[in-house]
């Protein structure tokens, strides 16, 4: 892939790109393991955060690829527990954001994480067109993408009866402004690494 070539031609590791783009320096990590110990998702991760930090520190392309292919980076809930506990104040959720964008760009998304990506995509598509989240539209979009047709079918009527489900979207008055923002953001550098 073209960007992967650029990155090796310049002899930049993924950690170097991360530092350049986000200012987060993972070389500071000294493997205390506090982030993994407090992570609510660590038990389900193939590599908990402290492990993928070490993998990236080595700068080895095979390990970098393994991180980008991992389920872990998609399981991160951005709850910020790791960040507030890190003795070196490394913004780990920001690292995860960077890795997800890179993983998506390079087509390395873990098969079992694809529904999480489909959900995020359906969410953003909803905003792109209406400016505000249209919950029902987004869930239908997600069902089409994930083919989870039956999920939550029994929840919906209860929500509707309780007045929690809008049948029609709320739109912003200037949908063009939204499209402009999306277009500009599509040129985001991180999404290109």
């Amino acid at each position: 892939m073209s960007t992967a070539q650029t990155h090796s031609a310049q002899n930049l590791t993924l950690a170097d790109c991360l530092l350049q783009e986000t200012g987060v320096d993972i070389r500071r990590c000294y493997q205390c393991g506090k982030c993994s110990a407090g992570c609510p998702m660590a038990a389900e991760m193939d590599y908990p955060s402290s492990v993928w930090m070490r993998m990236l520190q080595t700068g080895r392309p095979d390990l970098e690829k393994a991180v980008l292919k991992s389920q872990s980076i998609w399981l991160c809930l951005s709850c910020e527990s790791c960040y507030v506990r890190c003795p070196m104040e490394i913004d780990i959720p920001r690292v995860a954001d960077f890795l997800r964008a890179a993983s998506k760009r390079r087509g390395l998304v873990h098969p079992r994480a694809r529904n999480i990506l489909r959900f995020h995509t359906a969410f953003l598509d909803s905003i792109r067109y209406t400016g505000r989240l249209y919950e029902m539209g987004m869930v239908v979009d997600y069902k089409v993408r994930s083919r989870k047709w039956w999920q939550d079918l029994l929840t919906a009527p209860g929500l509707f009866l309780r007045g929690k489900l809008n049948l029609l979207p709320h739109r912003v008055k200037h949908p063009k402004a939204m499209r402009k923002l999306f277009k500009w953001a599509a040129e985001d550098k991180e999404a290109r690494i």
């Binding site: 809930l77 964008a101 995509t121 912003v172």
Partner: peptide, 25 residues
């Protein structure tokens, strides 16, 4: 008036610039 969605976790999960642009408007 005319506020829009903040992008929630979906935006910062996929595109950092978008995660700033949406709340910024």
């Amino acid at each position: 008036e005319d506020w829009n969605c903040c992008g929630a976790s979906a935006a910062h999960n996929l595109n950092h610039t978008l995660s700033l642009a949406l709340p910024a408007r």
